[in-house]
Design a binder for these strands. Structure first.
Lengths: 185, 185
DNA sequence: GTCGACATGTAAATTGTTACATGATTTA
DNA sequence: TAAATCATGTAACAATTTACATGTCGAC
């Protein structure tokens, strides 16, 4: 038995909320955005988007608005929705997320712009940096010990993981600089 | 109505097949490997692994073996399973996979070692390289045109995507060198 | 002799995929 | 006027998550 009757949005739900945080969009526009932009591993397809929008309406995180008879209806985030989004954006990062659900962290980062203050953004990035940096250490240690026993392809794929994490770490540091600079201004 | 009664393994199925291609493993070992190693976004949890193993047995891609009464039973890949794995590993890369399902390509790469010949490995990597390189071009063009209109966080996240793809491209070239070197030997 | 890890599973609920359906509007 | 794109949905199915259940074995 599930132990809560509370809202527990899926990643797709959050992606929709984040996308419409600034301007309302039609269902179709949302769908197309996921389909076309890089943001979209967060699956498109009518069979996922429309049910998701229904869910979000049911929980009153979005509402359908119709500006005029001629304009098609659009989905707008509610106050409630903004709150839920903010809570998600402000959640402390967990080690495991850095290791296994890094794409979710990037989604969160991409939607942070207007909804949380600089202090929190910096906390987010520093925590991201620290977890990732320690994870890279672990990967490198493992590589040092095991690389000789690994099959060529396994080893290469593993090395890609390390290099990729290092690139992300560099990026975090760059982003941190920009955000802190922003704060001082 | 679905139009085929044929086997259409999930990513998790392939991940299991790839993992046991060299040595049989118990269900628990498989689960733990997904849980612990970097390979594992490919979900662990008994509720996915055990049903997956059942599926694979049903399609005769793996079989349960029991070496002796004292040793617990393990899952071994069948000839059939090897074939299915080989077909998957040899599939030509599609543009969309590079853009949206790159982790699947890495999974394929990691399992290629023994099952396909060097020529095919090289085809795989070159195709990967070419698609990715053209994708990076698109991303950069978009960035050149739109970066001024993008909110800070959106832009930074986008830039991470570009840098990350470049790192992958470098890695592909390195891997290509190693594999070709291997061939000449 | 209890705790944690080993080990294998099932049931319910939820999600997402695939395929189908339908109609309006735009463009070549 | 035919094709493509805009636009919204549903139904059937497959897969995964979460939670529960149960039992063994070794270490401390």
């Amino acid at each position: 038995m599930k132990q809560d009757n509370f809202i527990n949005p899926t990643l797709l739900d959050y992606a929709i909320l984040g996308l419409i945080q600034n301007q309302p969009l039609s269902g179709y526009r949302i769908r197309k955005t996921f389909e076309e932009t890089a943001l979209g591993n967060y699956s498109s397809s009518p069979g996922s988007i429309y049910p998701a929008l229904k869910r979000l309406q049911k929980y009153e995180l979005v509402e359908k608005i119709k500006l005029s008879a001629s304009v098609k209806s659009q989905f707008q985030i509610t106050q409630n929705g903004i709150q839920i989004l903010q809570i998600w954006l402000s959640k402390p990062i967990e080690k495991m997320e850095v290791e296994k659900r890094i794409h979710e962290l990037f989604l969160r980062f991409a939607f942070m712009d207007n909804l949380i203050n600089n202090k929190r953004k910096i906390i987010f990035l520093k925590s991201f940096r620290d977890f990732l940096s320690s994870y890279i250490g672990e990967l490198q240690e493992y590589h040092g010990n095991e690389s000789d026993n690994m099959p060529l392809h396994g080893r290469l794929a593993f090395e890609h993981g390390i290099e990729s994490s290092k690139t992300t770490l560099k990026w975090i540091k760059k982003a941190l600089l920009q955000i802190t600079k922003n704060e001082i201004k």
